[in-house]
Design a protein around this nucleic acid. Structure first.
Lengths: 236, 236
DNA sequence: GGTAATAATTGTCAATGATACAATTATTAA
DNA sequence: TTAATAATTGTATCATTGACAATTATTACC
């Protein structure tokens, strides 16, 4: 006996939109594309696409991220499902937003030029289509929330990085100035980083030691609660 | 000029499923219904329904929650979008799960009997259809995560409650024994509760003072980070 | 070769917050 | 009056956090 389909119900499009964060050493940035089709052709937009019939949401998000960046094995987390009836005026579309954290340098190597993509500092975003502004705001908030307790920001850094670089990243994410002594003590006390023997020497006479992430400890400790920024109680 | 619809894309059903938590004074419980239609008719299931063409996701969730419980103005938060291609074998359906926290007593007054619903303690859940088990597990985890820092568990209590009741709730949610002295000090120091003049006297000779939530402070402090359970660092 | 400039690295003290731990109080029932 | 029950209350120790500045390594210039 064949099972009947649900009748008298509305079927809708399911889209994925990706909020892609990168860090250039100074500022946290977002990767936007120029939309290549109507409606709103030519305006800035998050990278997105429709979920196909044989893939789940995570797969769709990874596929779409790879289309644009060429990258796989990227940190990707479901953010929220956006479903206002008229969020896309063309047709009812529920969009599941994902946020991604990538090493901006790896991206530059692999970039696809099909989409005329561009990095924008978070404080200088252009106007974007549909409800993408709302998605971006939520992603920023979730990133700040998460990074206050979980070492997720390492996903934005290259393999080798320095403590001052890491601190600059935290300071930009939280728009705050952090005390160097307290910061390094806190980071080192997590045991997540391993000091290297070589130094980075750009723009510094003394040079700063490189560190690498201890991937075992990173995975083991990722879900537990660390205390990574000062005064997390004043966070939203 | 009329805007064209997106062509060559798959349209799918969008469902909502509600993970409804309640607290009976002893244990945290979940409200399940006996599914009234095929497939899987007669098995236990989360309360759910399809999103209609003119409502957004939050509205759909509130509507579905009201259908079952009769309650409005309930704490309701989007949990996650579940989209495995065959999660519902009938037809491709993406389900957006919401979790709700309700005062179990209010529910008993308003209950709809259309759905043969039943409360189950979290540790004695029956087998449920589709991927509902996964939804429930994620909701439990998110509740524990959230309640460690935000005073969300008050949503489960009646207007007037005692500190021992509140503590029992926390102990059940975290499956832990909490020191009474430390717990009351912590709760009182948040300034979120107001001591009443009357006592609750069931099963206690001395009786425990009632408290009420200070709703102004509750709203003001909800998003900030309180430290509501001991050793949150060992949380997942 | 010495010196100035630059940025990285390192340490201490005070305040705060968290935890462990038990005696006292209010009430009822026998 | 006493025993039983559960609520209420306090303190001392320990760990964490935050505030704060001097020293070190290196380079470029004189």
């Amino acid at each position: 006996m064949q099972i009947k389909k649900y009748t008298h119900q509305n079927r809708m499009l399911i889209a994925i939109d990706c909020i892609i964060f990168g860090f250039d050493g100074i500022h946290l940035k977002l990767l936007l594309i120029k939309r290549g089709f109507e409606p709103q052709k030519g305006r800035w937009s998050l990278m997105g696409g429709f979920v196909t019939s044989d893939e789940n949401l995570d797969h769709a998000a990874a596929r779409i991220l790879k289309q644009l960046t060429g990258l796989t094995d990227i940190y990707l987390e479901q953010l929220f499902a956006f479903g206002d009836p008229y969020r896309d005026p063309t047709e009812r579309t529920v969009s599941v937003a994902y946020f991604a954290l990538i090493d901006i340098n790896k991206y530059e190597e692999q970039i696809s030029h099909e989409y005329s993509a561009e990095w924008f500092p978070l404080k200088k975003l252009p106007s974007v289509i549909f409800d993408h502004k709302e998605m971006i705001e939520m992603a920023k908030e979730k990133l700040r929330y998460k990074a206050a307790f979980h070492p997720v920001l390492f996903e934005l850094l290259p393999d080798k990085f320095t403590l001052p670089q890491l601190q600059t990243l935290y300071e930009d994410v939280y728009d705050a100035i952090i005390d160097k002594r307290n910061f390094s003590r806190k980071i080192l006390s997590t045991g997540l980083v391993i000091k290297q023997k070589d130094k980075e020497k750009n723009g510094s006479k003394k040079g700063a030691f490189y560190y690498k992430l201890d991937k075992r400890k990173y995975q083991a400790k990722f879900d537990s609660f660390l205390n990574l920024i000062p005064n997390p109680h004043s966070l939203k």
